[in-house]
Write a protein that binds this DNA or RNA. Sequence first.
DNA 1: AATCGTCGTTCTT
DNA 2: AAGAACGACGATT
Length: 185
Amino acid sequence: MFAASIPTPDGVFVAWFTHQGLARLCFPDRRSWLSPLVPSSPSLEETSRPGKSAVAQEGEDAIARQIEPWLACTREVLFAALRGQPAGPLPPLDLERGTEFQRAVWRGLLDIPCGRTLTYAGLATAIGRPKATRAVGQACGANPIPVLIPCHRVLAHGQRVGGFSAGLEWKRRLLEREGTLPDRP
DNA sequence: AATCGTCGTTCTT
DNA sequence: AAGAACGACGATT
């Protein structure tokens, strides 16, 4: 896994890449998410231990080179998303870690366009599991790439905002910038 | 405000 | 391996 810090007007995000693609995006100032190192520069840094063989080093350099365009792409879409603007094409995503059900939910999230919202029940129906609304909420909470996989666009029934793993402040902020924050709670 | 239905995941035996 | 517990929910009482 390679970590890259991405400074933004909202703080320094950290993106984690595997050979498959972007695997995880961390909000700023969540110390527990920044393990084990907190890159200070916007460059790529790898996370494995220092005592590695030359071939291993070479392999990691190769991965780092491969990742560079993905990182550039990630920066772009993240900046757009933070302005509440529709994001362009995403970098390749590595969702290997998810369950089949979770991946279905995350794919469903990717279909919610900027400026639109869906209800947990609506998303459950959209993925063909109309009774699994609560499980859908769980899967949203497990979203490894928030903001880009827009779990913030899922609201509870009846103008209620619902929850957000990274804190409701973030959810409200993102929704407000997209002009979809419910006004009368 | 309290309870119940529902269901995937995680935590316990 | 099996069962209980636990949610970013929703509907009912």
